[in-house]
Design a protein around this nucleic acid. Structure first.
Lengths: 239, 239
DNA sequence: CGGAACATTGAGAGGGATCAATGGACGTGG
DNA sequence: CCACGTCCATTGATCCCTCTCAATGTTCCG
């Protein structure tokens, strides 16, 4: 065990209501402790894993903030997601035994390492964990399809509004404010995720600010009118 | 068992090298037969399932062609994928026990019904099936991320070229031509998938035809220069 | 204090959307 | 077998949203 590994236990983790063990019984959670063997620290800007590397484990974000991105041979890249505390990274690697994306820490972070073969082994023992793993993968599929909808049919304002609402909703589930947030990513990273250029992201922020919907100061964002943001994403209420 | 149900067996199915049983041993495949209880026929234009319906099974396409799509409250919709023979539909429903998309047959089709609880049960019995199910879900995640890349960072020509190459590649794996295909979907459905309007899809087809890269006559497409198409998607060779 | 990284804002260009009309393909019924 | 209607595809003209290029401003950190 290297110096950066720390013994951990899901059963005593204060993220257990958010993370993989969500919904498991106490005795099941104790068995899960044997899967989550150790933690790993990743410094801001460093990669948890990179495309092409061998897949061996899933990672649960214990603290910090990540982005995942895929890169084409010609250098284009696309941010495919932002992961915060309690979320699972690495599902892309299962199919080919190799990762297909990079996972990069946007701030100093810590993850729980869950060797996938152990997870499969334990999943065969109790169906609650098995079903839970299936749900996590299905959730990712549904999320990805939501991003497709965003990228395929929304305009810049709608994309950014949807993005902000999604972020605060997830942060709120973690005990943070419903209306204030500090972005952990640059305008360029937001743009890559939303299929926009960084200038368009910046301009759209400014437009929202002019309209009094949000207050923006660099990475700090305060949502002053959630309903207005929702109306931008989905203008049904007009009917 | 209703009139449209037909007893089937994976172990004698000629799609077993493409479909769920891929890579399973003969005795494992026979056990899988007990999961795949029956088949279901869906007429062109009809839905295999719709968003909101209770999830109970995955479906393997036995014959025919499907699209999946999600719809927003305000009527916008996004085609999230096209599924052909041997591909699995319904993974979106696992997370919430309800489907989040519609699956619509683009031509008369037949699917194998695989009750998910049975599949989970058998997955606990042998790890090869378990791992295979995980791979199928992971493959869908990787595919979705590829679509994000396409929608987020490619121009119309690149999108259509990537789409055509993907289609022929999958058709070729099923024994069809590498250079000819008949589209099962309309320009509008292609456009919805690619985040383009139908007029743009049509114009881009015409442009490819003018350049001599493809020959297009309504739904029939012949790829006359695969390399040129690849160069459109990923212009690295310039370097 | 100076430099690097990031963000904002402006002006102009361009790709795809929109609006609109025409043209085929296909199926149904006379 | 042809006439007709419907659905789908093609093509043109114009508009607009976002990209691109460029300059300036801000924050942070060595």
């Amino acid at each position: 065990m290297d110096l950066h590994s720390i013994k951990v236990a899901c059963s005593s983790c204060n993220l257990r209501e958010l993370c993989l063990p969500m919904g498991l019984k106490p005795d099941e959670m104790q068995k899960l402790d044997t899967v989550v063997s150790n933690r790993k620290r990743i410094k801001r800007g460093e990669a948890l894993f990179s495309a092409g590397e061998r897949f061996h484990a899933l990672f649960a974000v214990r603290s910090g903030f990540f982005k995942t991105r895929i890169t084409t041979p010609d250098g284009r890249d696309q941010v495919t997601g932002f992961q915060m505390t309690g979320e699972i990274i690495g599902l892309d690697g299962i199919v080919s035994d190799h990762h297909t994306c990079d996972a990069v820490a946007l701030e100093d972070a810590e993850v729980c390492v869950m060797p996938f073969s152990k997870l499969e082994e334990l999943s065969r023992e109790f169906s609650s964990l098995q079903h839970h793993v299936h749900k996590i993968m299905s959730r990712e599929i549904v999320r990805d399809q939501g991003v497709m909808l965003l990228l395929g049919s929304m305009r810049a304002e709608e994309r950014l509004a949807a993005f902000l609402l999604n972020l605060v909703q997830r942060l709120h589930a973690r005990g943070f404010s419903q209306s204030e947030l500090v972005l952990r990513m640059t305008r360029e990273e937001i743009g890559s995720y939303l299929g926009l250029k960084l200038e368009t992201v910046s301009r759209t922020f400014s437009k929202f600010a002019e309209e009094g919907v949000v207050e923006v100061k660099q990475r700090y964002v305060m949502i002053k009118n959630t309903e207005a943001l929702k109306a931008i994403v989905d203008p049904t209420p007009c009917a």
